[in-house]
């Protein structure tokens, strides 16, 4: 199934794409998508953005679908879902 990942805000400066369509098997979860991101671009991303050991973003991020954040990464994705990825900010 096709899942579109859109990189938003300042993360765009660090990613080789603004938007990318991933082809994932049926019943894939958000965790599967993250693993796929690591395989696809993990080695190209700067250490300030991607933790290669943990195969995850460095610093907090939000993933959202239709304006609602996903807080459980074990949920199954659905065909053609569009996921936005944004940095969750800490500075003041």
């Amino acid at each position: 199934m096709k899942i579109v990942l859109e990189i938003c805000g300042m993360l765009r400066e660090k990613f080789p794409f603004d938007m990318h369509a991933f082809d994932l098997p049926e019943h894939s979860t958000v965790n599967d998508l993250i693993r796929r991101i690591d395989g696809h671009v993990g080695s190209q991303l700067p250490g300030s953005v991607w933790n290669r050991e943990k195969k995850f973003f460095r610093g907090p991020i939000t993933l959202s679908i239709d304006g609602v954040v996903i807080t459980d990464y074990s949920i199954e994705l659905k065909e053609n879902q569009h996921i936005k990825c944004n940095r969750f900010l800490i500075g003041g």
């Binding site: 805000g9 300042m10 807080t71 459980d72 900010l89 003041g92």
Partner: peptide, 29 residues
């Protein structure tokens, strides 16, 4: 409120109102 580089975020949290959420509710555990 929070800000970094060119980005910012603002969230109002009123525990007196129904269905409030907190900042932590926006984050995966």
């Amino acid at each position: 409120g929070a800000c970094e580089e060119y980005q910012g975020q603002v969230l109002y949290m009123d525990p007196g109102l129904k269905d409030y959420v907190c900042l932590g509710c926006y984050l995966e555990k």
